[in-house]
Design a binder for these strands. Sequence first.
DNA 1: ACCTGAACACCGTTCAAGT
DNA 2: ACCTGAACACCGTTCAAGT
Lengths: 182, 182
Amino acid sequence: MRADARRNYDRIVEVAREVFREQGYDASLDEIAKRAGVGPGTLYRHFPKRENLLDAVMQSWVDRVNEAVAKALTHEGSDRELLLGWFEEYVRLISVHRGAPAKITSAMGDPDSPIMTKCQVLARANDRVIEHLREDGAIRDGVETLQVCRLVGGVATVADQGDLDPDAVRPMLAVVADGLLR
Amino acid sequence: MRADARRNYDRIVEVAREVFREQGYDASLDEIAKRAGVGPGTLYRHFPKRENLLDAVMQSWVDRVNEAVAKALTHEGSDRELLLGWFEEYVRLISVHRGAPAKITSAMGDPDSPIMTKCQVLARANDRVIEHLREDGAIRDGVETLQVCRLVGGVATVADQGDLDPDAVRPMLAVVADGLLR
DNA sequence: ACCTGAACACCGTTCAAGT
DNA sequence: ACCTGAACACCGTTCAAGT
């Protein structure tokens, strides 16, 4: 990759992260290009679809997911508290910007999605928590990771689109947790 | 209302319902106007915001909701079956077209939404089911109707956006039901 | 009172010309 | 190999002119 291309790529991603946070995932790509100081064609060369840009924006986020799940697993306390704590963290993690929870959760089952690798990171993190609790015999039979991702992702999506605050979200996550635990 | 205005109004609503079903809630208003044989200005005169059009489209749907809840309440069988059956019906009811579950669920808490009256119908229906089960002492403490609407609406939203089939949705609804029941 | 349709603004997307 | 920016298509929204 040529030096100027690399520089443009990085600037676009940085600006996109900023603009997505300010205006949500529907933000104008034209504005992102302008703020990054490149022509619209340059943005399209690097990111043919909006989702490719999202994937790049989420790159640095992967580490945070892995740190968060490691921390959640060390939690001292009841299984219910551990699970609930992880769900709250999960919601925070996928709420990268407005529109993100919906986008991420609907890509969760799709192997052809441009953000597939990010979904896998998230699914694996979730899986570690579920398997940890399953070893304690705390999880009901027939519970699948993908299901859990979609349930918690659904809560995050509703919270995102309805602009709910965490106090309204926690009881919903508690219902999901209770439905999963024995 | 003048006769020609009435006629245009009705045709727009009828066409909108059709186009929303074909192409989802993001469909072009221009196309709706064209198919209804009116100018774009006419559509805007009757429906200043897209949500006003959605509200009109959902008008005839109100009766179906009330019929569905009445039928659900007569169900013979366990509380869990009754609740689960109602949830499946609820998901079907708000899945009027692509994009509808998200729109309806996020309007659920907002008293200023153009589709507020439709949300009230839905909330009231849900409330009847919850109260019915609460009389049996089957519902956990602290459960609110709005919460339940958002939880089931979240599942419907994920199903809608991820194009899931009913077999993938039912187990998710079962988790929510188990989390609400004692 | 209501309708029409031209006009404007905005945005995504492409591509020929340039370095 | 990569970038630029003009050009096109599409869509939401407004409004002057018409009936």
